[in-house]
Simulated scan of single mutants.
Amino acid sequence: MLIDLHVHSRHTQGCALEVRDVLRRAREEGLDGVVFTDLNGLEALPEARAAAKEEGVLGLVGAELVTDHGHYLCYFPEPEKVPAPAQLFGTPPWPVREVLARVTALGGAVVAAHPYDKTIDRPCGDFIFTLDGLAAVEGLHARKRGPANDLAIEAADHLNLPCVAGSGALGSLDELGKAATLFRRPVASEADLVAQLKAGTVHCVAIGVTPQPAEAARRGPRRDERGGRGDRRGGRRERR
């Protein structure tokens, strides 16, 4: 199944996308489903449940939480039972280690969202190598340009974590259908999604992108694009 794991709706400040319109466009683009990950909230849940039935496409809900070290996509097996993030953590930005611990304690899965995105306040960057409890890294965010995606993929490789992908759709329905995550087994609920993320049986997929020549694909980002490395303690693991 192809599912866009990172989509916003009108419940994210600055976004005007209607839940129903997003699901309709996702179906037209050939996606099997989307996950609404509005900023710091799960408010899209009732609309997504109703619209998914009418549009005949999977509509799930998670949240993109803002922390003191980057943004994180959080998925819960039973989002209906999860308190609002403000009730869980107080006023954002929240301590990233607390977010990881609380979401994991609730049975959820946490994905580092565009960790090398310098357009946001307090990006994660190499701090990702000090974190425990991540299920995956967003290696492909369709709206990001430059080395951000390449560095995220490299970080996932060092951490021995799977990469996922999403459009990050925010400003236009035209942003949908550019990237998605391939799930090996059927997904019918947030619980199914969380289980497969934790099992690592997922792959990021770029849609409608012409592959790079072999030489360009082998050539990673230049050292001067990367900036300095941070502390990797506890982060770099043996490759399986």
Rank of each mutant, 00 (worst) to 15 (best):
L17G: 01
C124P: 07
R237A: 13
P79V: 04
W94D: 09
E215M: 10
L106K: 05
E47F: 04
K118Y: 13
A63K: 01
R102H: 06
E55V: 10
A26I: 03
R184G: 11
H69D: 11
D157K: 14
P221V: 13
A63Y: 06
R237F: 13
R97W: 04
W94Y: 15
G62P: 09
C74M: 09
P123E: 02
F129W: 13
T130W: 08
D126C: 11
G228F: 11
V209K: 13
V19N: 07
D68Q: 12
P211Q: 08
A44C: 11
R185A: 15
L106M: 15
V99W: 00
L106I: 08
C163N: 07
L151G: 04
M1V: 14
S172I: 09
I207Y: 05
C124M: 15
N40P: 06
R25L: 05
C124L: 15
R236T: 15
S167Q: 02
K198T: 09
K53S: 12
A216L: 14
L65Y: 05
A105P: 04
H203A: 15
H11L: 02
V34R: 00
D121T: 12
D117K: 02
G14C: 10
D150M: 11
R122P: 00
R27I: 05
E175V: 10
I153L: 12
V103T: 02
P123M: 03
A156L: 05
H11M: 07
G208T: 07
K178S: 05
G107E: 12
L176Y: 04
E238Y: 10
V7T: 12
E175K: 06
P186A: 08
P46Q: 08
L65M: 09
P79H: 04
V202C: 05
G220M: 08
F183M: 09
L60P: 01
T104I: 04
K178C: 05
M1S: 11
V205S: 02
L2I: 02
L161C: 06
A51V: 02
R49M: 09
P92C: 09
D157G: 13
L17E: 01
V103W: 00
G33D: 02
A165Y: 00
E29W: 01
A48W: 00
G235N: 12
L197I: 08
A206R: 11
D132I: 00
K178W: 01
H203Q: 15
R237E: 14
N40V: 06
G166D: 01
L176N: 01
G133M: 10
G171Y: 15
P85A: 09
D231P: 11
E55I: 03
V205W: 12
